[in-house]
């Protein structure tokens, strides 16, 4: 099955909507709870990243009996050095974002920790694509 969700850059009040929808779907599918937890944590981080850094984005979700692929495609500034961004504590967040409890520089490392497979590609000035893959059989 295929689903799409829109993300609005800068609007933190809506951040987490898509993650909640994905969570509900995985509960309906009776996916193992530990896998649901990891999927939702990784997706939520990714969703908040788009809200915090990009102008807009789309989440493409493909789910079947064996796996879920969550692809977040944003239009935004891009990440100049992905390797550096993957390091714990590295952050470019503005003080406004930090005040809201985001931007501690744990986003990407957390996503990597929770996802079975994480792919990031980015083009400076254009945007970033994050792909989270999860397998349902542990």
């Amino acid at each position: 099955m295929h689903f799409e969700y829109q993300i609005e850059g800068g609007n933190f009040t809506r951040a987490g909507f898509a993650s909640s929808e994905i969570k509900k779907m995985l509960k309906q599918l009776n996916v193992d709870l530990a896998i649901i937890k990891r999927t939702v944590v990784a997706t939520y981080e990714a969703e908040v990243n788009v809200v915090a850094h990009a102008y807009s984005g789309t989440i493409y979700v493909d789910v079947d009996e064996k796996k879920i692929i969550i692809k977040l495609v944003d239009e935004g500034p891009g990440i100049p050095d992905i390797e550096q961004a993957m390091k714990e504590g590295y952050s470019t967040a503005s003080s406004r974002v930090r005040e809201m409890g985001f931007g501690a520089g744990m986003g990407l490392p957390n996503m990597k920790k929770n996802a079975d497979d994480l792919k990031i590609s980015s083009e400076v000035g254009k945007g970033t694509t994050v792909e989270i893959r999860m397998r349902f059989s542990s």
């Binding site: 309906q28 599918l29 009776n30 996916v31 789910v63």
Partner: peptide
Amino acid sequence: SMDKLDEDIGEAM
């Protein structure tokens, strides 16, 4: 969990 549509993931799908 009471949200599950079926015990079996194929059926739930």
